[in-house]
């Protein structure tokens, strides 16, 4: 009987984000007739897509008991790099050569830049033993500074219809950003569930010392994880830039907080080793639905911040209570 009760409790625990989302949707459906419509649903998903991309990378980092505060700045820099390369290419006057970039080219370039910045985070954290909070806080400022330098503080606009399709287009009736977020999530789920890298990520977060003694190359795994988080932030940057048809130097400001909130609400433990990508997706959608619902209910933006903060606090308290029970 006790075993059945425990198993039931575990199942409820694993579904707590989904239950919270369903309850939230039910409440909003009752409170406003504008919420439960196909258009609004797609709108919420479109708005949430960027946070899902960033939060998915953040989940991998948090699972290793780390944190990445630089994703918002990396998003801005990668968006600016994509826009700048698409618009201006690379000029090499010495040999009278111009290297132009296609949309595919700028997407790849932005992802490489994001991955490199993330990898650098990992390098600083593992080689110089700098706490992830400090290392990524430094990168937050560095990447923002580079964004300002690269854009000269001005937006880079008019990027063309092909690039705009990434953020504003639809495929089979579903916004392209949602498809992109879905692919990012599926890749991350495959990594965490089907690969050795995924098992190592959980092992490092669960007990780093034990993981080291069992032969896992902690430094390499962490660098890969931070590089993945950087690449996913870059994807978010491409979507944001494309949606706005403009790379804004101050894009992505405080996006890292929304991503961390999605991870926490999704049930991933900030101490690492426990959590899932699906939970984060639920967390990101909960934040998106909450934002959307509060706007539809005409709640002041100031109160929206308060409500969001309370939800995050509640999620952390529940997480702590769960950890104690386990």
């Amino acid at each position: 009987m006790i075993a059945i009760n425990n198993s039931y409790k575990q199942r409820i625990k694993s579904l707590q984000s989904l239950i919270a989302l369903v309850l939230l949707c039910l409440v909003l459906t009752v409170l406003t007739d504008k919420f439960f419509t196909a258009d609004n649903g797609l709108n919420v998903l479109r708005q949430t897509a960027v946070n899902i991309c960033i939060a998915t990378g953040m989940t991998l980092v948090v699972l290793t008991a780390g944190i990445d505060l630089s994703v918002g700045s990396i998003l801005a820099l990668c968006g600016a790099v994509a826009a700048g390369l698409l618009k201006n290419g690379i000029a090499i006057p010495a040999v009278d050569t111009y290297i132009g970039f296609t949309v595919l080219g700028v997407v790849l370039a932005a992802m490489i830049v994001g991955a490199l910045l993330g990898w650098f985070n990992g390098l600083v954290i593992t080689r110089f033993n700098v706490p992830p909070f400090v290392a990524t806080l430094a990168m937050l400022t560095i990447a923002r500074g580079f964004t300002m330098l690269y854009t000269k503080g001005q937006p880079i606009s008019n990027l063309g219809p092909q690039f705009a399709f990434i953020g504003a287009g639809s495929f089979l009736g579903v916004p392209v950003p949602v498809w992109i977020a879905a692919v990012v999530v599926l890749i991350a789920v495959c990594i965490t569930r089907q690969t050795r890298l995924g098992r190592y990520i959980y092992a490092i977060g669960g007990n780093e010392t034990a993981a080291r003694f069992s032969g896992i190359r902690i430094s390499n795994i962490k660098m890969i994880v931070y590089a993945l988080a950087g690449a996913m932030a870059a994807i978010g940057g491409i979507i944001v830039t494309s949606r706005l048809d403009s790379a804004q130097p101050n894009a992505g400001t405080s996006y890292e907080l929304d991503a961390i909130a999605a991870v926490v609400i999704g049930g991933t433990s900030l101490s690492g080793g426990r959590g899932s990508i699906w939970g984060t997706v639920m967390g990101a959608i909960i934040i998106g639905v909450l934002n959307n619902g509060l706007v539809l209910l005409n709640v002041s933006p100031f109160w929206q911040q308060v409500v969001k903060g309370c939800v995050i606090l509640l999620a952390v308290i529940i997480d702590k209570a769960n950890a104690k029970q386990d």
Binding site: T97, G100, G105
Partner: peptide, 12 residues
């Protein structure tokens, strides 16, 4: 091949 293209800078 599909990501970049190269031209003379003066033409551009």
């Amino acid at each position: 091949y599909n990501a970049v293209y190269i031209r003379k800078l003066s033409d551009v």
